[in-house]
Design a protein around this nucleic acid. Structure first.
Lengths: 270, 270
DNA sequence: AACAACTGTGTAAGCCGTCTACTATTTCAC
DNA sequence: GTGAAATAGTAGACGGCTTACACAGTTGTT
């Protein structure tokens, strides 16, 4: 939506003009990790001269999301995005300052809005929050492949805010609430990753034959290797008949979530 | 240590010769994700004709580890590794079949051997296990950047086996023990990632001035952005004086670990 | 001992990715 | 209208992964 910095042609001495902003001083803005300022919508709109942009950052992000949904995060490359939009690769640099920034924006958009949580029971609310996050990671698996170096982006922060607001009723201190949030976030993320790598038999049946064959091959291979190295505890655990059931009676995610919530509850009650 | 497949020159009709192996049949081996077979040491050594290899897979992994330790996972590129060893890039393909395989081997080596766990108290042992893993992630931060697509590699599996063996005394079923292991693994991984992104003030003081400035800039920026969007719960939590203390009295990792272990303990005792 | 088969390495090149000049063109401000 | 500023295109540098080919060195066999 907003064009970026001034063209590379001029010596760019106009930074001072925009520096009388209310936000923070520009020196600090430059030190921010790539994409953070853009994600929060803090970019200099610049003078409105020249031709109108034919496209927008939103459009670019939408196209990149399409590509990521279809073929994974690696498909959201600048040439592919540009090609689908119908411009040359470097034209994207008028809207986005780097690939890293695009990825940050992409990830923030994928988080979407947090669910509205019920007021009364913090435990119920926290469970809902984590489950919804889990589902989101399942529906956008490529989100798990985005390196989590940049800490907080708007949607991200909105999720966190929703949970912490609810956790306020527990009487925990701020630091503890944040730690609990990280616990639940981490668990949702990891559970989704696990599900992606080792799908349930039911999910496998919906997959293509090649994938089915691949998963079976890995299972057989690992079993033989584990046993030949006397790692029998793992091998036995993975041969557990429950794993071979269509839908495991107790999903890994739900099991862990219950443990975490139990642990938090015990802590809250001293 | 072992050269790979036969040269690209010949039509390579000698696959059948090696197929009378005890492991698994070759058709399955081909379907494995890249690097899995190599990580477990299952590769065809091929006929021992031709010149002796001047180097080894171990050497390549060692050099790649050096580079990753120095400048992150991105520095462990084939040209850089080859350059440090003193060969051309493509010579590495005699030892490793792809970049992905190298990464898998690299990650497996970085896990190293699991700690020896005390026998008596499963809770003590599990805590030790998770803390050791946490420390390992801290000392090799680039390990967090390795995509966790391939499930189990030898060192990886050895860690898992050590924990599950100890958890056997809880009387849990196999599936539950695996879920607990994933819980503890996930927590160590996420905690290390968090520590890397938001270092403690004490750690910050040991960093270079640029890094200090960057962290401060992010903090100021985020606070203003969060408040201007009424995400006050998060903003308040991050302004908690405990965060500004040199060493937080209760580290995020230790807090979460205690909750998880409490939750497991409650489950074990029905 | 000599040949053939096989293997490791170098050279060269293809493809894809990010990113930076530079140019032409369009649009707005004065 | 004239000039300044912004957009998009052209061209290209640079680095990454990967393959094809030629050459040289080593081993097994005759």
């Amino acid at each position: 939506m907003t064009p970026r910095k001034s063209s590379g042609r001029d010596p760019a001495p106009d930074r001072e003009i925009a520096s009388d902003r209310a936000h923070t001083n520009d020196a600090d803005l430059e030190a921010l990790p790539p994409g953070l300022a853009a994600a929060w919508g803090v970019v200099d709109t610049g003078g409105r001269r020249g031709p109108k942009p034919a496209h927008s950052v939103e459009k670019i992000i939408a196209v990149a999301t399409e590509l990521a949904d279809e073929e994974g995060i690696a498909a959201a490359s600048l040439p592919k995005v540009a090609g689908r939009i119908g411009v040359t690769t470097n034209a994207l640099y008028r809207y986005v300052s780097s690939k890293d920034e695009l990825i940050v924006l992409l990830a923030d958009r994928a988080w979407g809005d947090p669910p509205t949580l019920p007021d009364g029971d913090w435990r119920e609310a926290a469970a809902l929050w984590s489950r919804q996050l889990f589902e989101r990671f399942l529906s956008r698996p490529w989100l798990l492949d985005v390196p989590t170096t940049v800490s907080l982006t708007p949607h991200n922060a909105a999720w966190l805010d929703a949970l912490i607001t609810v956790l306020g009723s527990t009487g925990m201190e701020a630091q503890q609430m944040l730690n609990c949030a990280y616990l639940l976030d981490s668990h949702a993320r990891y559970g989704a990753n696990l599900r992606r790598n080792t799908p349930t038999p039911a999910a496998l049946r919906r997959a293509n034959p090649d994938q089915q064959q691949a998963v079976r091959a890995v299972r057989v291979f690992l079993d033989s290797q584990l046993r030949s190295r006397n790692l029998n505890a793992v091998a036995d655990a993975m041969e557990d008949p429950m794993f071979l059931a269509d839908e495991p009676p107790l999903d890994g995610f739900e099991f862990g979530l219950a443990r975490i919530l139990d642990g938090i509850e015990a802590y809250v009650q001293r």
